[in-house]
Design a protein around this nucleic acid. Structure first.
Lengths: 138, 138
DNA sequence: TAACTGTACTATTGAAGTTAATACAGCGAA
DNA sequence: TTCGCTGTATTAACTTCAATAGTACAGTTA
């Protein structure tokens, strides 16, 4: 669980955050489940404890975790506010691409189809997606 | 035309690229239209010529411009490949958010509605969008 | 007390991104 | 040619940030 990719330009603490969020999303980490301690997880991943602390701290401020001094970090109960905030953030990420697609002449219908296609697919890919082939212009 | 925002953490050359792309999208810069020279635009924006060159160079490699040594930079004729590549890139940007929305329990229908809403809106906002209010958790 | 937990702070290293300065090379007209 | 424009290449300086290291402090529990 929780494999880091050092060739990834993404910071380690971001990768850690993504992995933990994914596990929470998928229900692998139930509410109030205790997570490994800062020092323990740091040892497991052979990274500095500060790196873990930053990840936990960010996740706490985003409402995914709560920490208790002297006890540990735990999975927070999802709140309506929290979820709404996540949804809002994700929707905002989509606005830019949508508007650009429109300017490129892509119809709404085409976009809708691709949205549906992405939605139906089973796999979860945070950002470590499968790259068919990127660009390539002659 | 082409106002830079120094308080924006986004690099200057990225801002410049976005602005030029937007003008091309909107048809303000017709095909084979000559752009200001590297030094000229640098003087206009009071930035280093290399900053402009990087922007132009990137846009050229993305198929938006072509440069002729000793003459200048010009708007490229849009090709099928170029457009297809842009569309593909934009669609990929949407896949991550869509999958995360599904895990959050947002229905496809809801997403479709919001996609349609973003598509219908008239304004173009590359990223310098109007922020209503970001997050905010009590 | 002892051994765990989270938290805070400073300092340093290293890498990457960004901008700057300068020199070189092609084009076109006087 | 010469002059003044154009893009291009190279190197250096500067800044920012991720990551680590070390240390210290504070709460919990057996």
């Amino acid at each position: 669980m929780l494999q880091l990719d050092y060739s990834n330009p993404q910071p380690l603490y971001e990768q850690i955050k993504e992995k933990i969020k994914e596990m929470i999303f998928r229900g692998l980490l139930p509410t109030h489940q205790q997570l490994p301690s800062v020092r323990e997880l740091a040892a497991m991943l052979t990274v500095n404890p500060n790196t873990i602390q930053k990840a936990y701290r960010d996740l706490e401020s985003q409402g995914y975790l709560y920490s208790v001094r002297g006890k540990g970090n735990f999975v927070a109960a999802p709140t309506q506010d929290h979820i709404a905030s996540q949804v809002e953030t994700l929707l905002k990420e989509m606005i830019g691409p949508i508007k650009k697609l429109r300017l490129l002449g892509v119809t709404l219908e085409t976009i809708q189809n691709l949205v549906a296609g992405a939605y139906e697919e089973k796999s979860f890919s945070g950002q470590a997606g499968h790259d068919h082939h990127e660009g390539g212009r002659p």
